[in-house]
């Protein structure tokens, strides 16, 4: 294993760990779900955007997936896990599509990701409960997703412009 690969894996592991901690800390310290079920700022998505910016789409998918799995180790692989994985899956599909389209900036990608995360969650809950009224939460999750997506994009942009990872990571580009 080359030094550069070890370096890359170490940084990704560190970002993954930060993502899991932020995810858990946000749920405890910044609960917004009293607005509506599923509403959250999604601070851990800043890590996803940072990974996407510095490493690329494969790493973005891997780190996102691992974050959901590792978070489930704390909260269990029950109902919450189904909701989380469906939200992640839909958000990731949309981000991958828009990333290859190359027209949206970090703001557009973050917004689309946040909104689709909520949509994925609602679809899963509606399927599990077989209840059409679950989708009444969609507009709230759209509006809060747009707002949280923009906030997350601002934070992620500040991080990538202030934290100088670029020079040490450019060597990993193929």
């Amino acid at each position: 294993m080359t030094k550069s690969l070890i370096h890359k894996m170490t940084r990704l592991a560190l970002l993954l760990a930060i993502g899991v901690v932020i995810n858990y800390a946000e749920a405890v310290l910044l609960p917004l779900a009293f607005i509506a079920p599923g509403v959250k700022l999604g601070l851990a998505n800043t890590i996803g955007l940072i990974v996407l910016y510095y490493f690329g789409i494969k790493e973005y998918i891997s780190i996102g997936f691992l974050r959901v799995i590792l978070t489930a180790l704390f909260t269990g692989f029950g109902f919450n896990f189904y909701i989380a994985i469906s939200g992640w899956a839909l958000a990731t599909i949309v981000v991958v599509i828009f990333h290859y389209w190359q027209r949206l900036s970090i703001f557009g990608l973050s917004m689309a990701s946040a909104v689709m995360h909520g949509v994925g969650q609602i679809i899963m809950v509606a399927i599990l409960y077989q209840n059409k009224y679950i989708i009444n939460y969609l507009p709230i999750l759209f509006f809060t997703g747009i707002a949280s997506g923009l906030i997350i994009a601002v934070i992620a942009r500040e991080v990538v412009t202030r934290v100088r990872l670029t020079t040490s990571l450019d060597e990993y580009e193929k």
Binding site: H99, L104, S105, G108, L109, M111, P139, F142, F143, I146
Partner: peptide, 22 residues
């Protein structure tokens, strides 16, 4: 290709579309 950090006009379109749809 790194994702742009400055907003593009497509971001505005996406924002408008999402707000309208919501």
């Amino acid at each position: 290709n790194k994702i742009p950090l400055k907003k593009t006009r497509f971001d505005i379109y996406a924002f408008s579309f999402l707000m309208l749809f919501a």
